[in-house]
Design a protein around this nucleic acid. Structure first.
Lengths: 182, 182
DNA sequence: CACACGCTGGACCAATCGGTCTAATCCTGT
DNA sequence: ACAGGATTAGACCGATTGGTCCAGCGTGTG
């Protein structure tokens, strides 16, 4: 991680997103974070006055934006909901193989934090954003409102649970196979 | 937690299971653990020579056994797979409301630990145990081998993902509603 | 009674934790 | 060239971390 030309703030966010999702919020110390991002402590507290927790929020938001892009990219080229959902699963399986057995970045980052409630509500906001994004594509592709809602939530749960199982097994196969159950 | 008559070792396991699942492995310090279990540090290292990590393993196993009992209780009185799966979901939703928005105890405890690989393989072993338990009931209720395998994995993923969404929303509704998608 | 052993209680430790603070440096607009 | 805000660098802090160690306790067996 942490290419040189990136500004310090972005390097911090990128390192945080990577480390938090592999070891969890409390599993990463500021020392790890700063050495990975090649940034001094002063910079952290300049860009994120509240320190670690601010950085965690930013990292989760960044990870969420990536996920939203992935969803859009999967559904944009598809003619049916099932097609879009299937390519999303395949893209995620590939991502799983590349990054290697991490957790959901949101859950790892926000479900442990100290100031539990603001973390939790931010996680909720992010998850609803994913579901809403899928919902919009579902509606666009002809599903009724109630069906679109049910299917987008269903897909969310499958991905979330499938990713967990894939991590335990160290194999992305389940993520690909679950497309049969859409 | 931690009734008086329970032996120290059990109190430690119980406290560990409770605390780890709400704040994660690294989010719980030995001090919290010991004060919750009303046990001195010496006892911890007497019963669990490797300290925190041994205790985490035991706590995960204990939580897994409870889950296995819950699965058995749900399917034993049911005549079809769908019935069993539905009552399992309802039991879990009720459990969610009682314990209150925790994570999956296995994921919270074992997916962050220091000695990552033995933790991960233990988590995998536990998850496969759950799926195998559901599989046995599915086969007993007449499903073919391949269908039983697919359905039990599917149920696992739904529960795992549904629980996460329920936690973010602070509502067990999704866990109940997902029975329509079995 | 005496010995042994499973267990408890807690003092103590080095390392690390997240966070504060200030001086130096960089960069930009004038 | 200069001023002045933005950014960096890192020494320093008290609190807490997981872990070690041993003296004593209680109980059951010889």
């Amino acid at each position: 991680m942490s290419d040189r030309p990136l500004p310090t703030k972005d390097r911090l966010i990128l390192s945080a997103a990577t480390l938090f999702r592999t070891r969890g919020y409390h599993g990463v110390g500021l020392a790890d974070l700063l050495s990975d991002a090649k940034a001094p402590k002063g910079s952290l507290y300049h860009h994120f006055p509240n320190g670690k927790s601010d950085l965690a929020m930013a990292a989760a938001t960044w990870a969420s934006d990536e996920m939203l892009r992935l969803i859009a990219a999967s559904f944009d080229g598809s003619d049916t909901f099932k097609d879009g959902a299937t390519t999303l699963c395949f893209k995620l399986a590939k991502l799983f193989d590349i990054t290697g057995w991490d957790t959901c970045p949101i859950a790892a980052t926000l479900f442990e934090g100290p100031d539990n409630d603001s973390f939790r509500s931010h996680a909720n906001h992010i998850y609803e954003g994913w579901i809403a994004e899928v919902y919009d594509h579902a509606a666009r592709l002809g599903l009724s409102a109630s069906e679109a809602q049910a299917k987008s939530e269903h897909l969310f749960m499958l991905i979330q649970g499938g990713w967990t199982l894939a991590r335990a097994r160290r194999s992305s196969d389940v993520i690909r196979q679950m497309t049969n159950r859409l």
